[in-house]
Design a binder for these strands. Structure first.
Lengths: 139, 139
DNA sequence: ATCCTAACTTAGACTATGTCTAAACTAAGA
DNA sequence: TCTTAGTTTAGACATAGTCTAAGTTAGGAT
């Protein structure tokens, strides 16, 4: 049973078969898929599912705050079902592998007042880069 | 005289009129333009400049390490001529205004060893989000 | 100076990613 | 059953960026 589906239902969101398949595809993964990858995987269970429904559904889940949209390099956005708790991302510069990570402290605190240019700063996300164990071995 | 042009020349890079215009357009700005914006502005000085040359030139300058490519939300990449010293970005969630900022300390130090999953972590960039003074007033 | 070659530039075709539209379908209440 | 709002669909459209093939240019060799 998908916990994401439960959370979505609380928003009085109609849980159609299409939306259920998309939510379960997202949540069942430990990597962050692109919309096209989600379409491809969801179509294995529901072949008539359309591209537009996948894009619409992902955008709506982002708007509801139940999943995160990640804009990283490479061309396409990726979707992270883990919107619950603060986390950052660690990306391998060799192969593109991505991991969720947790940093100590709040990065907002590391930004001095005179660097804020009058902004109210509400959040911060950190993208760490390096080489994963496999790519270190290959180098 | 463009300092970026000087740095590019050191890479034995042929400085053509097109490349000079692109470099000077980049460097003259305090905002980070998209490739299309650079094309548009550079064309004011050199109307026959082609889109392909702008994209090629920007990609080559990124590969040489002389400018930074920023992948932020919104659909297009932006280019930052200030590759020299470490800095992060602060973005207004209201209007999209972006500022370069400097945080205290090195974010790599805030990532505990057991959160590194065996990666060698070489760098980190922080994206701060909030509301600029104008958007606070409007809210 | 002229030739040669490699580097550079160009227009436009092509690809990838994502949005929009209009029509059809579905579910729930009157 | 009828109505209505919400949902889904195919495909057209939009945008960002890359590729290709041909033409141009710069600079070294003769």
């Amino acid at each position: 049973m998908s916990d994401l589906v439960t959370r979505l239902r609380r928003h009085n969101w109609r849980i159609t078969p299409q939306r259920r398949v998309i939510a379960e595809t997202l949540e069942g993964s430990h990597v962050h898929y692109t919309a096209e990858e989600i379409l491809e995987r969801a179509c294995e269970r529901m072949p008539e599912l359309s591209r537009a429904t996948v894009y619409n559904t992902l955008n709506e889940m982002v708007a509801l705050g139940e999943i995160l949209e990640l804009t990283l390099e490479g061309r396409s956005k990726r979707y992270d079902p883990n919107a619950d708790h603060e986390h950052h991302h660690l990306i391998c510069e060799g192969c593109g592998l991505m991991k969720d990570v947790h940093a100590v402290g709040n990065p907002v605190d590391w930004l001095p007042g005179d660097e804020r240019h009058g902004f109210t700063v509400t959040r911060a996300s950190i993208t760490y880069r390096g080489l994963c164990p496999e790519c270190q071995a290959a180098a």
